[in-house]
């Protein structure tokens, strides 16, 4: 699975929706249920799935599939 596919999977699971409803273009703004509370559990899920530690300052930036994917690819390299 590519990083972006994994990210889509984690986001869908956290929001409790089917993976097919989340795409590479999904953002917090255009996605139902991706509110500030769900965002906290998303941060936790990303940390645990990709074995990374996020900084508070990164939380707000990680607000779209694209931003998260790029961020994780950068961290993993």
């Amino acid at each position: 699975m590519s990083v972006s596919e994994q990210v889509i999977h984690v986001v869908a699971e956290t929001l409790n929706v089917s993976s097919s409803t989340i795409t590479k273009e999904s953002t917090a703004e255009n996605t139902n249920g991706w509110d500030s509370l769900a965002h906290v559990n998303l941060m936790i899920a990303l940390e645990q799935t990709f074995d990374i530690t996020l900084d508070v300052e990164d939380f707000a930036k990680l607000n779209s599939i694209q931003a998260i994917t790029e961020f994780i690819e950068k961290m993993k390299n």
Binding site: V10, E13, T14, N41, I44, A45, Q48, T49
Partner: peptide
């Protein structure tokens, strides 16, 4: 367990 594991 991680959060995704607990959910699954």
């Amino acid at each position: 367990l991680s959060l995704p594991e607990a959910r699954a």
